[in-house]
Design a protein around this nucleic acid. Structure first.
Lengths: 190, 190
DNA sequence: TTCATTTCTTAAACCAGCTTAATTTTTTAT
DNA sequence: ATAAAAAATTAAGCTGGTTTAAGAAATGAA
């Protein structure tokens, strides 16, 4: 049904076929075109989203009206504004497709029911959320220790698939650089 | 026994007295003086730590030999290098007490056993780790949208208890500023 | 209380990365 | 294919925050 989703879960917990069938009850599949929104500023983030296929970005508008990208999500990544999702607060973020994408959504209420019915999923989410914390600790360490130039070079060599797939100005935004500066850095490297 | 610990868990999940008794099996209490280490660079982070009383910092040494603080932990906060803890990799971090502290440690193996025996704890950790992700999303948003001056002013008005308790140069380090610049900002504000 | 250590301040020179603004190239929709 | 829109480049001037170097003040240990 959703091969990336199921195989991702089975990487971390055991899940028999009956549980897979039950799991489907809680999931809403979405087919989205390029530049469609899953969340807009001011809305409550009512679901967490799994990228079955495609690519998303999460961003907010800063005081100079720039779109500041804080996260990307490719295949088998989860994305949400967790603060908004957990506490039902309006989100400052937009979540938008960068390409045509297939997304699985689990709403707040489905999430709660699913975790009650399927304790393996409680375990699965504990593990992947813990991995998300590990990833954000690492990202933060890079931000502390690298200059912006190093940070860009590191990112583009570590994740070349992103540089292929995502416009350069979005990578600049994610890394906290101006597009002009990225352009300068690329020129310098050749 | 450990009032902050138990009441913190009971904020998020139900835990009967029998479970509390079982829980104690998995916990190692530590009494530490000022400036003692729970983790040093190169070691594997074998435990996650709960601050029952006191104050910790987590930092690494950057290429200019500065101590870069990435996290603090006060009462009822958890702290660990999650990447090292999950994957048994050597950590680049130091975790050290700032004051005399009482810490509860749960080792990798205890953690696994505890989660198997007490499913409420799986749920508890899923929730608090999800909250940690929410907190780090928020922190990152602040880093994107604020100048270093704003970031300092925001931090010191939002967490005045930190400014009381932690030396100024550590706050500077945590915020990614030089101590000299913080000094300048304070002068400016008076 | 005293000394040694740690922490904080001051000030001037410096620079990584931003701003502004105009032009060119690439991509998308029809 | 073609026009319109979106993305990338170039270059000059500027600034927020760092670096370097001393000295002053606060704190902890004995």
């Amino acid at each position: 049904m959703y091969p990336n989703f199921i195989s991702h879960i089975r990487k971390y917990v055991e899940l028999d076929d009956h549980s897979v069938a039950r799991l489907n009850q809680y999931i809403s599949p979405l087919k989205l075109k390029r530049k469609e929104f899953l969340l807009k500023e001011g809305q409550i983030c009512q679901s967490i989203y799994f990228v079955e296929k495609g690519c998303l970005r999460m961003y907010f508008i800063d005081d100079k009206l720039n779109e500041q990208i804080t996260q990307f999500a490719l295949e088998h990544w989860w994305i949400a504004d967790h603060f908004s999702f957990l506490d039902n607060k309006p989100s400052p973020y937009f979540i938008q497709t960068i390409e045509k994408s297939e997304i699985l959504a689990i709403s707040t209420t489905s999430f709660e029911e699913m975790l009650r019915e399927l304790p393996q999923m409680e375990r699965y989410f504990r593990i992947i959320v813990q991995r998300a914390v590990a990833a954000s600790q690492l990202r933060l360490k890079y931000m502390y220790e690298m200059s912006k130039e190093e940070f860009y070079q590191h990112f583009s060599t570590t994740f070349p698939e992103f540089v292929q797939r995502v416009p350069q100005y979005m990578i600049a935004s994610y890394l906290g650089l101006t597009p002009q500066y990225v352009s300068e850095l690329r020129k310098k490297k050749l």
